[in-house]
Amino acid sequence: MKKLREVARRTGGPKKGAISELVDAALKEHLREVEARSVRQEFRASRGDLVVARAGSLRELALLLEKRGISPRDVLIESSIPLPASTKTGLRRHID
């Protein structure tokens, strides 16, 4: 509680309701994270522009491809969660 008051003072100043605003912001952020986690990932197999199969897991996707007689080597498998163009690894020089 002491830390909460300190942070509220730093971010919201002495005004009334600073703690409530801080708690409200933290709750919203937490709920956004929980919601983002609950979005189900979908996998797609495509040949050129044509999506030939979609499924909620690679296991289900592989089964669909097998049923449809499509070789997994002939399709591009992608996720609904976009692949970032670049990722970082190792120690950062500063904390964001």
Binding site: V75, L76, I77, P84, S86, T87, G90
Partner: peptide, 17 residues
Amino acid sequence: DEIVTRQAVVEVADGRR
């Protein structure tokens, strides 16, 4: 390596890409 792969970039600790 036998399925269709994508190219990406990894930025390592010393800044190399």
